[in-house]
Design a protein around this nucleic acid. Sequence first.
DNA 1: TTATATATTTAAGTTCGCTTAAATTTATAA
DNA 2: TTATAAATTTAAGCGAACTTAAATATATAA
Lengths: 219, 219
Amino acid sequence: MDNVSQEDYLTAIYRNLDEAGEIKPNLLASKLEISNAAVTDMLRKLSRDGFVDYQKYKGIKLTGEGELYAKNMLRRHRIWEVFLHQTLGMPWDKVHDEAEKLEHSSSDEIINLLEEFLEYPEVDPHGYPIPDKNGKIKKSKTVVAITELNENDTAKVIRVNDDVKNLLSYVTKIGISLGKEIIVKDKLEYDGSVLMMIDRKEVNISNKIASNIFVEKIK
Amino acid sequence: MDNVSQEDYLTAIYRNLDEAGEIKPNLLASKLEISNAAVTDMLRKLSRDGFVDYQKYKGIKLTGEGELYAKNMLRRHRIWEVFLHQTLGMPWDKVHDEAEKLEHSSSDEIINLLEEFLEYPEVDPHGYPIPDKNGKIKKSKTVVAITELNENDTAKVIRVNDDVKNLLSYVTKIGISLGKEIIVKDKLEYDGSVLMMIDRKEVNISNKIASNIFVEKIK
DNA sequence: TTATATATTTAAGTTCGCTTAAATTTATAA
DNA sequence: TTATAAATTTAAGCGAACTTAAATATATAA
Ligand SMILES: [Mn+2]
Ligand SMILES: [Mn+2]
Ligand SMILES: [Mn+2]
Ligand SMILES: [Mn+2]
């Protein structure tokens, strides 16, 4: 397969599987920002080519081959992100969009050389794990969304969702980066927002944002 | 413009302009390995979009904008080649095909950062000059094809055509690399081939190959 | 259970970049 | 100059990846 669209479909499917390992066309369409009709169309092709299990009106599953392909795309994407951030000094809120293009234009050979050059990084600049050549993903620390914390919990930021538009640049603005310590001061009942301390400053973040920042509880 | 094909057309046009600054559709088609009809089609679009001057049955010229765009593509291409060869250690006969894809997927920002990281290289791994941000190309040494040399001339390899299939890997096999010294022993009248010394070994290369290796005469 | 809302598929149509075949123009050679 | 060859354009058509609108199936709520 040598195709930008199909590769983005597979990645989007893999990233958004539910607990049952499925995804609905409607969600996929919204993640890819295209029409439902286009998704139906493409699902037939991906199914014909053996990358997804698809039956009309049923949830979409990846085949073994499809899952491997998707994980390899994540590998390419994340290794490029590390390179752009770490080697070229590009800010973490810009690397995703660039990697979104580069991932389709680089042979496995380039990716393997890059990985070696970068000394085998384990996570991308947003804290997501990098699959190895065989699609194996190291099981990472147990993390929870900030929304799961309780009052007075102290936690360390491990991962921030890199798939949400403008989230990273906003999060940067309020002082959050990987490894940063936060302390939950208050959880507001009526809107689910969270009041917390970052660098000795009080910051209130909405429930929506809190649900996309993943942390490791300290003690 | 955000298009692989159009970008490759512009680059191919620029690289193959004749002394009059023009190229014929037929040559362009063969360089791009597509039909003449496809070229006619695309020329209308490139003309409509202001990148080429085109009138039916006349030679194709680049507009100012078209030339700038083409040179920027060469810049991207060659900077990627330097990175792949120099930083990742990919052999010089493999980097061209990879760069052919990467050139379309990288913002000017990435290219500028890469250029800085590489410490502003002046030529790509095949000896071709790298245009700067403004499209300026440093005028390089005066070179001649090996076919232009005379018996007993000594010369240094400065540039090898990177656009000819399998040329680089062949040339590598017979011991030629950038900077290598050669001595012309004999020029065969009947087929234009050249007999020369490389590393104290006698090597005969065809006229076609000799015409794609560029050297600087020594003394 | 039935009405209504939502999700999904089907149908028809568009743009892009290509193809082959036929028509036409330009170049070359007798 | 004229016949022939070569280059170029035109015409028709294809697959990929989209779109919008309409039809149909499924989910949800009264
Ligand atoms: Mn992508
Ligand atoms: Mn990421
Ligand atoms: Mn290219
Ligand atoms: Mn080159």
